[in-house]
Nucleic acid binder design. Structure first.
Lengths: 203, 203
DNA sequence: TAGGAAAATGAACACTGTTCATTATTTTTG
DNA sequence: CAAAAATAATGAACAGTGTTCATTTTCCTA
């Protein structure tokens, strides 16, 4: 009498199949450029079938949003091996940039795409994202304890750092550095990052 | 024999009519949400007519991109009255934020929307944008001369400041501050801005 | 094996940007 | 002033989008 159980399994499998396919297409083309029909074709089902497993395209967005944060957290996990908190902070920043340019579509869905607003903050993506932010705040707090950062409200400092990293990454990602010459552009991010680190340190 | 001249005038008028209409719709709804048919309907012409005056929707994007930067430059123009360069820098940052939240659609087209790539850097928008960046660099240079900023490569420092401002504004604009409670969110931007100013100053 | 539930689908709806042959208007010419 | 040429505007179409729903197919149970 395990029919119900099997059906449930099949349902989960189907959701995963859709998501896996959407995921792949998404990395290649970006969310807006992937259509329900694309996904349907890839898994050899009718477009209407997708709607039996996901309410709408936004619900697929959600799932990918969560996925992206998981990939991110996994990607930066290595830096927590670093003992010195300030070095860890710097490494975190470097990893952040690396992630941005390695997975621009992920970055877009995580931080740039207009958020699917009906979602509760308890969704996979926001939870996973919150974890990343808490990790940053943890490092910042440690730095303050250690004395490598001036003691100030931890959350606000972490937010300041995040803002800077995010700003720089998105300016580059969205091609808003045309004002700089080719050569300038090359080193600008690197230089700026060093300057910002110095700003933080020299307090 | 002023027919040619009049026709040219009419052509310019028509382009302006289209743009004016597109502009209004755009501010209300954003670029992606405005369709050629919307614009056509607003000016009481057929959609096909639009294509006699603009190559495609992207060319309209361009024009709006330029417009947005003009509005921006006009919006922040007041700060140049301020004598003290560091105070001018701070005022500039405040105006930047004010602009962002007052004209989110403008901000989006200026800095967030995927840039229309076929465009040469000599387009209206980039020129006007370059002017804004140069203004910032000018202020930064003055601050260094005055001693209120540590002497460092001007362009890189200006880019660092811009990155921070841009990052914070886009995180807010794109609703990526859900991790903070309502009360936190209120003051977070303000606090962070103060922290950043202090970071710059205390060198 | 028949009947009912569940799953999958084809076709449609209302949109989108864009093109192009056709029609309407305006200007020039005989 | 009328005919011809040039210009301007359009309706209809194409290929695409997200989404819905009546219909069909598949599966499970009695």
């Amino acid at each position: 009498m395990g029919v119900k159980e099997r059906k449930e399994r099949e349902r989960v499998d189907m959701k995963e199949l859709i998501l896996k396919s959407a995921h792949q297409l998404f990395i290649d083309k970006g969310f807006d450029e992937v259509s329900i029909r694309n996904i349907a074709e890839a898994i050899e089902y009718s477009p209407a079938t997708i709607y039996l497993y996901f309410k709408d395209k936004n619900e697929i967005f959600h799932a990918l949003h969560g996925e992206a944060f998981k990939v991110f957290n996994h990607f930066v996990a290595g830096v927590f091996e670093i003992k010195d908190p300030f070095k860890r902070l710097v490494a975190m920043g470097e990893k952040y940039m690396e992630f941005t340019f390695k997975y621009p579509k992920y970055y877009t869905i995580m931080f740039i795409a207009e958020a699917p607003m009906q979602c509760d903050e308890s969704s996979e993506g926001w939870l996973e994202g919150g974890r990343a932010l808490e990790a940053l705040e943890g490092i910042v707090a440690e730095c303050m304890k250690q004395g490598s950062l001036k003691t100030q409200p931890v959350k606000a400092v972490a937010f300041t750092i995040w803002s800077y990293m995010h700003g720089m990454c998105t300016l580059a990602l969205r091609d808003r550095m045309k004002h700089y010459t080719e050569e300038e552009r090359e080193g600008m991010i690197e230089k700026s990052f060093k300057i910002f680190i110095q700003l933080l340190k020299n307090q």
